[in-house]
Amino acid sequence: MIWEVFRQKKAGDYHTHCGNVHAPDREMALLFAEIQHGRRMPTNSLWVVPQREIGEVDTEDVAFGGTTDKSYRWAMTYQFEAAAEEVAESEDEQAEAERQRRAVVDGDD
């Protein structure tokens, strides 16, 4: 029987799939997973699951997100160039104002 193994590196992290083990029962699968996948890298915990118990839903089974345009959620659709120019202009204006304030204070007016 094949058992899939998921490893958590440190407490609070997500478990990620790290491989599988072949074992006749749960106790042996846990032991094999610990030996093969738990000792090689820092490990907080392991999940060992029978492969036949893992279900999958893919794009052929269901339309994830539907057909609604949600491109506004990703920053790649925004125009940053104009905003960057405004920031640069504002910084230049602030620097010029600071130079003028210093000139007035120093009496160079």
Rank of each mutant, 00 (worst) to 15 (best):
A23T: 07
A88H: 04
A84T: 06
T68G: 05
M41R: 15
I35T: 13
D61F: 03
A88C: 03
N20T: 05
F6P: 00
G55H: 12
F64N: 01
A23I: 05
T67Q: 08
A63E: 10
L30S: 03
R102Q: 10
E96T: 04
H17D: 13
D106R: 11
L46I: 02
A75C: 01
Q8M: 15
Q8V: 09
M1A: 07
T77A: 08
S45A: 15
V104I: 07
H22I: 02
V21N: 04
A84K: 14
A75S: 09
F80G: 01
P50V: 04
Q94H: 00
E4Y: 12
I54K: 04
E4W: 08
Q8F: 09
G19I: 08
E4T: 13
D109C: 01
R40T: 15
K10M: 13
E27A: 14
A103W: 00
N44I: 02
S71M: 02
V48K: 08
A11T: 05
G55W: 11
Q36R: 09
E93T: 06
R102K: 13
A75T: 10
R26S: 06
V49C: 10
E91M: 07
G38R: 09
Q36G: 01
Q36F: 07
W74K: 12
A33L: 04
M41P: 11
E4H: 07
V87A: 06
A29W: 12
G12Y: 06
T59G: 12
A75Q: 06
Y78I: 01
P24W: 00
V105W: 01
R7Q: 14
